[in-house]
Amino acid sequence: MPSEKVINEHFDRLANDIPGFIAASLVDIESGMTLGLKSNRSDFDLTAASAYNSEMVKQKMKIMRALNLKTSFEDMIITLGDQIHIIKMVTPGTFIYLAADRSACNLAIVRNVVNRNASVFQ
């Protein structure tokens, strides 16, 4: 696991590459803890969002097991009225959670940038 400082530096870079970046965190799935984070908005409770999203990831994994799906879980894209949320699996135990302003960003670009940078968080 990279140090918190390194994780935060990578998120700084990610924020520069994504127009409309709101916040991002690296999350430990099992405990729901943030291992590093970056937020451009003080009213966005990234800690709570990360913890609750870890529950969603756990449920998705449970569904895959229940359906006996023998494939990998790559990412989840959630489209809200004014935001895009991306959950990108980094390792079997961690994921990146990223929120961006829908009016300012392009989904394909956001996904591409996150995918390109995911390996540095391993």
Binding site: G32, M33, L35, L37, L46, T47, A51
Partner: peptide, 9 residues
């Protein structure tokens, strides 16, 4: 700081 406490919320 956030990330130093569990459970997070």
């Amino acid at each position: 700081p956030s990330g130093s406490i569990w459970p997070p919320v």
